[in-house]
Amino acid sequence: MNNFQYKRVSSPAAAIAELSKDPAAKLVAGGTNLIDLMKYGVMAPDKLVDVNHLSFDAIKKEERSLYIGATVRNAVAAGNADVLKYQPLLSQAMLAGASAQLRNKATMGGNLLQRTRCGYFYDISAPCNKRVPGSGCAALEGYNRMHAIFGASSSCIAVNPSDMNVALTALDATILVSGPKGDRKIPVSEFHRLPGTHPELDTTLDRKEIITGLVIPDNNFAAHTTYLKVRDRISYAFALISVAVAIDLDGTAIRDIRLAMGGVAHKPWRLTEAEQLLKGKQATVENFKMAAELAMKGAKAYEHNAFKLKLAPNTMIQALKTASGVKA
């Protein structure tokens, strides 16, 4: 690990000030991703700003939404009574990620900023446009089994590894940030970005901004949510494909629905067209198959991940069946 300066801050303003004056400074909270990347030499910040003592550790049910602070630990949020009652999909997704030990430390803000697990991003001897802009992408012609089938570019085909982010995307969360110019709100769909020609940027968060929390609007989905994650082993592995489903079901009619996929793109992949197709329709396997076919429009596989073209729609259909209770 490179040597670095360590600074503990007790106010958001102090954290923003540190980021503003030092371009190579990074925030640290749970440390479960950043410390690992520093050990590999993938990231080498010259200053770590410890934000663990900022008071963003509350979960609060507000009038028409649920607020979760940026430094709330993933395990705490996943087990919180209000989260379980109002947004169970988020809890399901978080419990599908990492291990109990990691969830006890990992924070909401940190998970939003979790970096890709692409093996070439971690391998500092390999070219990687995300790690060293302009160096190339070793995954394009390499072992790309885990990689993207949607929204990739010739610069980067890595995927966002977070389960939590998939649920937040399905649930239309808003990310609350604070910076030198004041506060702003970023819809989660605009928070993570596609690689384009700048895969070094995972998100639209400015270098000088900090995440203070997130808000999920109330919905009628709580009774019919499923997070289905398919991976190489039954627990403690990153998703090959994951699907988040939230349905507002009136008998067998789909009043409203949210769908998002993980393990397929540089950002959590919202399936808006499939949602539109299913809205107002009956919850039937036939309709689910049509929606899955539509969802796969534009998918593109690489040498080693063609199996995802089949696994993704199958996972989606299964998740829809589970969430709606439709058997056949």
């Binding site: 440390g31 479960t32 690992d36 410890d50 663990n52 030990q101 990691l102 430390k105």
Partner: peptide, 26 residues
């Protein structure tokens, strides 16, 4: 030493965590 195996699990303030991914100063 990379947060993948759990061999370094300890309790921090009563909660299990991986000591390899914790800076002591934190």
């Amino acid at each position: 030493d990379q947060g993948q195996c759990g061999a370094c699990t300890v309790h921090i303030d009563g909660v299990r965590a991986l000591s390899c991914l914790q800076l002591a100063v934190m």
